[in-house]
């Protein structure tokens, strides 16, 4: 009874007119907005909607920034496809240059939307290979980051980028600083064949734990596993490839002295200005050094993993066989090498 009375009163209150009183400030309206504050900066959430920018350069730049910064993934994807179109036009139109493009777009490797990643790979494929090769070290950093990403999709797409890179600049990939050992490390970690993890753990207790092959939360089908092994095989194959001996050039000596070098960083192996490198991030410029390091650090682990994979049969087994061939090919080559010495 009492409460209903109260409710009635409360209901009435909404429609009552506020009494004005002498000497009192007027009551503020319900929709009153306090504007007394001061702001140091204003953020405009909307971006310009004008699309018909007359200047091609401006348009390209806008799309490039959209590809990086836009929130919705459709917008990013469309921007990437615009850039792709510009690059694949018959005289390719690239006002910012491959280097600029790569610096801006590489963080998209681990983008959350798969369509963006697919478009990015498409875009990379049309980049001129000769301009990509000087930036291999940088690209590899992002690839390594992507290969150990939490999400399986990102890992797989990164493998595609890796494949592209091996196609475009295989030699540089295996010989750049950190390109050989660190990438192998990432591969083996991806496959679960990493000896350092097992050694780090096994000394903590006496139950022998094998490195688990399943990753957190995501299903890993045989296809992706097989693909990883395949790519590793390709990587190793390129690493163990025999260099074609340079043909004798009588002017090479004088060119070396008096001409500007043709390659981007000819004295990279000296590491004159960088931070001192450890064993992993060292560069292994020729086949012999790569093989030596591989034998010392990775062969046993990878062979063990490979044997396990072979036994699985199917897709994985076949991929493992190709890896075996890659390793064997190297053995054959090694045998060939050793023969003339004897």
């Amino acid at each position: 009874m009492g409460s209903s009375n109260r409710k009635k009163k409360e209901k009435k209150k909404d429609f009552q007119k506020a009494k004005l009183k002498v000497g009192k400030a007027k009551a503020k309206a319900a929709n009153f907005t306090d504007t007394s504050f001061k702001a140091k900066s204003i953020v405009v959430n909307q971006q310009t909607l004008v699309t018909d920018a007359t200047d091609l350069l401006e348009q390209f730049k806008q799309n490039l920034s959209l590809a990086i910064n836009a929130k919705p993934d459709n917008q990013r994807r469309d921007a990437l496809s615009y850039i792709y179109n510009q690059l694949s036009a018959k005289p390719p139109n690239n006002p910012v240059g491959t280097a600029g493009l790569l610096t801006k777009l590489l963080p998209l490797l681990s983008d959350s939307a798969s369509s963006v990643r697919a478009n990015l790979l498409k875009l990379f494929r049309v980049l001129p290979p000769s301009e990509v090769s000087p930036h291999v070290e940088k690209i590899l950093m992002y690839i390594r980051g992507g290969m150990t990403h939490l999400s399986n999709d990102v890992r797989n797409d990164t493998l595609n980028v890796m494949e592209w890179l091996l196609d475009v600049a295989g030699d540089e990939t295996v010989s750049c600083p950190g390109g050989w050992l660190k990438t192998l490390n990432s591969f083996s970690s991806m496959l679960g064949w990493n000896p350092s993890v097992t050694s780090a753990i096994s000394n903590q207790g006496w139950t022998a734990t094998s490195a688990s092959k399943t990753t957190l939360g995501t299903r890993k089908g045989p296809e992706s596993h097989a693909r990883q092994i395949q790519l590793l095989a390709k990587f190793i194959q390129i690493g163990f490839q025999r260099e074609t001996p340079a043909t004798y050039d009588p002017r090479a000596y004088w060119d070396n002295i008096y001409r500007l070098p043709a390659t981007a960083n000819p004295f990279a192996y000296l590491n004159l200005f960088g931070t001192p490198r450890d064993e992993d991030s060292e560069m292994y410029p020729n086949r012999m050094s790569r093989m030596r390091v591989f034998d010392a650090k990775w062969r046993s682990a990878i062979v063990t993993g490979m044997d396990g994979a072979k036994k699985e049969g199917g897709l994985v087994g076949r991929a493992a066989a190709s890896l075996d061939r890659a390793l064997k090919g190297e053995v054959k080559v090694k045998a060939n090498n050793s023969e003339p010495e004897q």
Partner: peptide, 20 residues
Amino acid sequence: KSYAQEFYDQWLAYDAQRQI
């Protein structure tokens, strides 16, 4: 112990990001 592999993946990712 069981998540050592996952941690190692993230450690590598950290290392790559650090170098970048």
